[in-house]
Design a protein around this nucleic acid. Structure first.
Lengths: 110, 110
DNA sequence: TTATTATATTCCTATATTAGCATAGAGGCA
DNA sequence: TGCCTCTATGCTAATATAGGAATATAATAA
């Protein structure tokens, strides 16, 4: 094991710290296994970008890949990360919304 | 609200993506409110570094501060983030450990 | 006022990350 | 073999982040 457990956790959070990777994870959590090209289609992002983001997630163990003919299918390997995101949906959303208000149609941070 | 909810989540994960900030959060979650100097003492880090990390966490709403005389006390404002870390402790630890083994006393990644 | 303590901020440098584009590799099929 | 599709990697410029040292700010007390 790495000498510092906090480094490991930080590495996982760093992998999660990108909007595109969160979108990818949501897709994988929703649809299960999916190949790179279908993820790229769904997100309307070019394929090399998707491959690189998938590599980041895979390097820290969040997802895993399985080759099947020409395509490579990815799926979530750490179910807890999906729980993280669900927890985020439930709690953080309300929390974040409470910090913003719209005054005269203009967005304001309280 | 920011136009992209994924950017908001990514910003929160980015704030969590540093071992020192995770240590700070664990301290705050354990002891409740604590001033900058005591956090710096506990972590054996110099004060400006702690202040900067606290600012990162505060900017995304994870923690909040309260001035009390000379000191500034910080405490967790997003309990869900603490749940995140607990969830991490329970699930990720087992998950991560399962990926490592010690062969002949040497650390090996499977 | 000055001094002291606690905290925040600034500056600089080194390092890391990202996006975009081009290209390389790998597998399947004619 | 050659061609096509899917995926991964390499390169570069722009941006972001981290660490260290110095300094600025704020509150309190003498």
């Amino acid at each position: 094991m790495p000498n510092d457990i906090y480094d490991m956790y930080a590495a996982i959070f760093k992998a999660l710290a990108h909007p595109t990777r969160l979108r990818i994870l949501e897709i994988l959590a929703t649809y299960g296994e999916m190949c790179v090209c279908n993820i790229a289609d769904k997100l309307n992002i070019d394929q090399p970008a998707v491959s690189k983001h998938l590599a980041v997630l895979k390097n820290v163990g969040i997802i895993e890949s399985r080759k099947q003919g020409l395509t490579v299918n990815y799926k979530v390997r750490m179910p807890c990360v999906v729980n993280f995101l669900k927890c985020a949906d439930e709690v953080l959303e309300a929390d974040l919304k409470s910090r913003y208000s719209f005054i005269n149609g203009k967005e304001m941070l309280r």
